[in-house]
Amino acid sequence: MAKAILGDSEKWFIVHGVQDDFRTDGRSCENYRHIELETGILSNTHGSARIRLGSSELLVGVKVELGTPKPQRINEGWLEFHVDCSPNAHPVFQGRGGKELSDNICSMLTRVYRNNTVMDLEALGVIPQKHCWVVHVDVLILECGGNLIDAASIAVKAALYNTGIPNISLTDGDEGEVEINLPDDPEDVKHLKTINCPVLVTLSKIGNRHIVDATDEEECCCSASLVMGVTRRGHTVGVRKMGGGSLDPESVTEMIDSGKKIGRQLHISLDKLLKIEAGMSEDIKQTGYL
C-alpha cells in the first residue's frame, strides 16, 4: 500500500500531538476533515458521487443491470462492489499493486451491506427466478490522502442515494413469456431507499488514544485500527481490526463506543447534505465534473 515516508522524530511529533488531543492539522482526536461531496455528476451512470475528504478523492459510479436472481433468494436483486485504485493516485498502484487496498475496501463494503437491515433488496426484484436488478457500485480512487475506507463508504451511500432505477413495465408476451419495457423518459426512475445504509468509521490507535479520519502521515504512526460499519440508528453492522498491531480489550470497547457516536453524527450531517443536494439539482444547472 502507498504510504507516506516519515522519520522517527516526525512520527514522535504526531504521536505526542495526539496524546494532547491536538493533531498536526489542528483537529482534535474525534474530528473529521472538511468533506466535499457532489452527487449526480456522471451522465452515463444511474447514480454517481464524488467525495473529497481532506486530500483523498474518490469517484463512485453506480450502474444497474438486469441479471438472474440467486437461487437462495428468488425475488431479490443484489449489490456488487468493485474498487479500483488508479495509478493516477499513486504509482505503486500500477498493475496489481493496488490489489491489497482495493480488496480490503471492497470486502469491508460487502461485509457491511451483507445483512437484511441496510437495504430492501426485494425492491430490486423484477420477475421471480427470472430477472432482477444487479447494482454494480464502482469506486475509483483518484487521490490518496488517508482514510480511504471511510471516504469510500460515504461516497457509496451518496451514490446509492442518487441512483435511479428505470421504472420498467411488464407486459405479457407470446407463450406465457413476459416482456420487459424500458420507459422512454430517462427521468422516469425510482430511487433506492438508502436511509439505513451504513457508513464506515475507522478508529486508528495512536499512542494510547484513538483518532478518527487519519491522514496518510497519521496512518504511518498507527499499527492497529478498528473499522466499523455504523447505521443511522447507531447499530454496528460489521467490525474488523486492520493493521499488524494489537489492541487492549478495554480500548476495543472504548473504540466501539466512540465509533458509534461519531458514526451517528456523520450520518446526521450526510443525510442533511444529501437532501440539500437532491433539492439543488433541480434548480441549479449542472456544469459537469470539476
Binding site: 461485509r111 451483507r114 447507531g234 447499530h235 454496528t236 453492522v237 460489521g238 481490526k241 463506543d257 458509534k260
Partner: peptide, 8 residues
Amino acid sequence: LSEGCMES
C-alpha cells in the same frame, strides 16, 4: 471480525 447488524 464481526458480521451482521447488532447493537453496540
